[in-house]
Write a protein that binds this DNA or RNA. Structure first.
Length: 160
DNA sequence: GCCAACGTTGGC
DNA sequence: GCCAACGTTGGC
């Protein structure tokens, strides 16, 4: 029986929305809008529940790294950025009366004092099956197993 | 339902 | 900036 996922990882490009931008949000809370991939949407819609932990990952960064932690404070609802023709994530195929794209609200929890760069993560044997490290992986919302999550937290605290 | 063409992601 | 690996679209 597959265990229910309660830990997640989301990617963001720091050039557009970094962990520091997150920290600056009112109530340190943001809607995780702009996801336009069905599998990523499904994870948000079906898997992400109140209180779940979410690792924040900087992609296209120097270096690309896991940089902090957030939690789910609102479960999936329609991504209204799809309705705004002036928004870069506009999608006329997702109208208000029949939304295709969903988002959740995340609240900032902490910024890790020790970033976990992709290279360092690849060196950790117990993380070798992590979705993030899979060759060609592009999922911007992905599940993290309880043991992977525990390993990552330990790495941020002890470095090993 | 196949698959070529195209657009995007994201490491490097 | 390059380009491999994907996902989506649309002609047939």
């Amino acid at each position: 029986m597959p265990s229910v996922i309660t830990h997640w990882l989301v990617k963001t490009e720091p050039e557009s929305f970094s962990i520091d931008d997150f920290l600056d949000q009112p109530r340190k809370t943001t809607c995780w809008s702009g996801v336009r991939n069905y599998q990523a949407r499904n994870y948000m819609r079906d898997g992400m529940k109140l209180g779940h932990s979410v690792l924040i990952y900087h992609s296209n960064a120097e270096p690309s790294a896991i940089v902090g932690l957030a939690k789910v404070v609102k479960e999936a609802y329609a991504d209204f950025t799809a309705w705004d023709a002036s928004d870069s994530h506009y999608d006329p195929a997702s109208p208000p009366e029949n939304p295709r794209w969903m988002m959740v609200d995340l609240q900032f929890v902490k910024k890790f004092s020790r970033e976990l760069a992709l290279n360092d993560l690849r060196a950790v044997t117990s993380l070798k099956n992590m979705e993030l490290l899979r060759k060609g992986s592009r999922l911007s919302v992905q599940p993290v197993s309880a043991t992977e999550f525990a390993t990552i937290l330990r790495l941020t605290e002890t470095g090993k």
